[in-house]
Nucleic acid binder design. Structure first.
Length: 154
DNA sequence: GCCAACGTTGGC
DNA sequence: GCCAACGTTGGC
């Protein structure tokens, strides 16, 4: 099993939105970055866990945990001209973009802000904390996963 | 809103 | 295949 971090802008899709969905599940669609696409298509597997991370908001940070419940499959919003994620270059016969399905697991007892993560030298090698990182989906080392969860109750 | 950093595009 | 121009991301 692997661990991940998935970014979302809370104004766009929040963990509360996920919790409110039928079966508390939702396709993680609209990702238009090749590296993140490759992760969802090739690496994320049903049963993996991921941190739900808020970006581009008042308090960027980790707010919860989700579980991958479906392996990568083509992102159909790319085929829909009415979708804001429409990509005419994605051909259903040869899809360019992929998504996984995620399921709500729980919210953290408190959000763990990016600023706090930066205070821990142990986490300095996380892709999230590396300068200029723009990946919307990235791996989390198992040790980092547990370290971060231990911050939750402080 | 600013702007640094990065990814993508497209002319050559 | 190079690389300048442009668009996007995302913290601040």
């Amino acid at each position: 099993m692997q661990y991940w971090l998935m970014k979302s802008e809370p104004n766009d899709f929040s963990i509360d939105d996920l919790q409110a969905r039928p079966q508390q599940r939702e396709p993680w669609d609209g990702v238009r970055n090749y590296q993140a696409r490759n992760v969802m298509r090739d690496e994320m597997k049903s049963g993996d866990l991921a941190f739900f991370y808020y970006s581009s908001c008042a308090l960027p940070g980790i707010v919860g945990i989700v579980k991958v419940v479906r392996n990568g499959y083509p992102d159909s919003t790319a085929f829909d001209p009415r979708s804001r994620h429409y990509d005419p270059k994605s051909d259903p016969a040869n899809p360019r973009w992929y998504q996984v399905d995620v399921e709500f697991v729980r919210k953290l007892q408190r959000p763990i802000p990016l600023l706090e993560l930066k205070n821990h030298p142990q986490l300095a090698e996380m892709p999230l904390l590396r300068r200029g990182n723009r990946l919307s989906i990235m791996p989390v080392a198992e040790a980092d996963w547990h370290f971060i969860l231990a911050l939750e109750n402080r």
